[in-house]
Design a protein around this nucleic acid. Structure first.
Lengths: 246, 246
DNA sequence: TGAGTTTCTCAGGAAAATCACAGACTCCGG
DNA sequence: CCGGAGTCTGTGATTTTCCTGAGAAACTCA
C-alpha cells in the first residue's frame, strides 16, 4: 500500500497500514546513525544492531520487513548472520553493504534470491531506492505500488531507469538519474544544495559543493531544454521541481 | 494458471490459484539455501530436507508439486528415495541433481518418465527453467502457459531452444541462450552484472565479471547485428532488453 | 583421436561520466 | 547604476566503465 504524506511524498506501508520495519546492522556507529536517520525520514520504523549476535536477536523480536546488513561484522561473518536470520525469517529481503574492493567473490549468489547489495561508500539515495525496490518486490508492501515517478509530464521509471518528458525519451547518466529521482520524490519542495549533496553523493564525497550546480545545469539541458522549465532555483535556498503548468 | 507480478514477470500458479509447492533435497546446506532462496523468489513455496528420511517424511505432509532431489544423500540412494516418494506421490515430477561425472545411463532411464536432471555445478537459470518445464508439463499448473518468450520481434522457445528475430532463425550457444532467456524473462528492467552472473553462471564460477560484457557482446552480434538494437547498456547500472520500437 | 566449437582470460583502446576550475552571468540592495 | 553574492556553464583533465580482438584451454562429437 502506498499513501501520500502531507509533504507530498509517497510512503511505502505494509498491507495492514502499519509502517515498514527495517533492521540496520553495521559495526560503525556513524553508519548506523546515518542510515537510521535517512530511513526514518522515509517514514519507516528502524532498529539497529552493531554485531551479528545483536542482529539475530533483534531480528527475532523486531521481525523486520527488510534488513540492511554489513558483510564485515566483528563477531561473525555476514553470511553466517544471513543463514541464522533466514531460519527465523525465511522471506525477509536483505540489502548487503560491502567494501568496494572486497566485492566480487563474497557477493556471489546473493542477488540470486532477490537480495541486493551496495558498495561502500554509498549514497543515501542509492540505499533508499534499493531498499524500496526490495520491499516492493518482497510483497511486504502492497503489490500495487509501482516503480514510476510522475511529476507533470515528466516520468521516471526506477526499474528500467527510463526517463521521459512529454513522451520523449531522455538519456541520463547515473548521477543525473539519482539527482532527478531525489527531486521528483520531493516535488514542489525546496531542497538545499547541502541536502542534495548529502543525499545523492556518497557520504565520503570530498569535492567542491558546486557539483550540485553543475548537475542541475546538466539536468536542465536535458529536461527543460526549449520547454517550460520544471526545475527552479530559489536563490539562497536551493532547488525544486514542479509541474510546468503552475 | 499464470499471473503477472508487479515486476512484470509471469508466475506459475496451481489451478486453484495457490502457489506452487517445491521440495528441495540436498545434504549440503549451502545448496538448499541457495535453491530455496532462488525458488522462493519465483513465487513458489519451498520446503527443504537434508537426507532421504527427511525427504520422504516432508514429501508426505507437504505434498509438493515438484521435487529437486540430489542423487547423493548420506543415508540412502537417490533411487531409493525416489521409489518411496513415488509410492505416496505417484505423479510428482522430479528434478535430479547429479555430479558432472556420474553415470548418465542411470539417469537416462529415469528421465524417460518425464523427470529431468541437471549436473552440479548448475546455474540457477537452468534449474528454474527445468523446474518450470516439469511443473508445466505435469499439469500441476495451468497447461495453457506455454514455453515461448516474446519481446518485440524476438522469440525464444524454452522447449526447443529455438531463437528467432523477425522470423529469421538464430543459433545461440548454451550460455548465450541462458543469458538471453534471463534478459527476456525480465524485459525492460535493468539487470546488474552481478545479478546476471548469479543467475546465468554456475554457483561456483570464480572468474572475471567481464564474461558478462563478453557474452552481451556476442548476443548483440547475433541479435542486434544491423538491426534496431534491443539490448541496451545502462552505464554503471547494467543491461536491459526491450522491443526495438520504443 | 582430432577438428570444430565453446568458454573464458587478458589487455588495449574507445567511450562516457565525473569533476575542478574559472570566467560569465543574474539578481538585488544601495 | 554599481558591486557583490550567488548561480550558471564552457573547457578540459582524470577516472571509470565498457567493448572487443586475440588466443588459450576445455569441451564435444564424429
Amino acid at each position: 500500500m502506498t499513501t501520500t504524506s502531507p509533504q507530498g511524498r509517497t510512503e511505502l506501508l505494509r498491507p495492514d497500514g502499519s509502517p515498514v520495519r527495517v533492521l540496520v546492522v553495521d559495526d560503525e556507529l556513524s553508519i548506523t546513525e546515518l542510515l537510521s536517520m535517512a530511513l526514518r525520514y522515509e517514514g519507516w520504523q528502524i532498529r539497529s544492531a552493531g554485531d551479528g549476535t545483536g542482529a539475530i536477536q533483534t531480528a527475532r523480536e523486531f521481525r523486520p520487513d527488510a534488513v540492511v546488513l554489513d558483510m564485515m561484522l566483528p563477531d561473525m561473518d555476514g553470511l553466517t548472520v544471513l543463514g541464522r536470520m533466514r531460519r527465523e525469517l525465511p522471506d525477509v529481503p536483505v540489502l548487503f553493504l560491502t567494501a568496494k574492493d572486497a566485492v566480487e567473490d563474497r557477493i556471489a549468489g546473493l542477488t540470486a534470491g532477490g537480495d541486493d547489495y551496495v558498495t561502500k561508500p554509498f549514497s543515501l539515495e542509492e540505499v533508499v531506492a534499493r531498499l524500496r525496490g526490495l520491499i516492493r518486490r518482497s510483497g511486504a508492501a502492497d503489490r500495487r505500488s509501482d516503480s514510476v515517478l510522475i511529476v507533470g509530464d515528466l516520468t521516471l521509471d526506477e526499474d528500467s531507469h527510463e526517463v521521459s518528458r512529454a513522451g520523449e525519451g531522455i538519456h541520463l547518466t547515473a548521477t543525473e538519474f539519482e539527482l532527478l529521482r531525489f527531486l521528483m520524490r520531493n516535488p514542489r519542495r525546496v531542497l538545499s544544495k547541502a541536502q542534495i549533496l548529502d543525499r545523492v553523493w556518497s557520504y565520503d564525497f570530498g569535492g567542491q559543493a558546486n557539483v550540485v550546480e553543475l548537475y542541475i545545469s546538466y539536468l536542465r539541458r536535458k529536461i527543460d531544454a526549449g520547454r517550460e522549465p520544471m526545475i527552479h532555483t530559489r536563490r539562497g535556498a536551493g532547488y525544486l521541481i514542479k509541474p510546468a503548468a503552475s
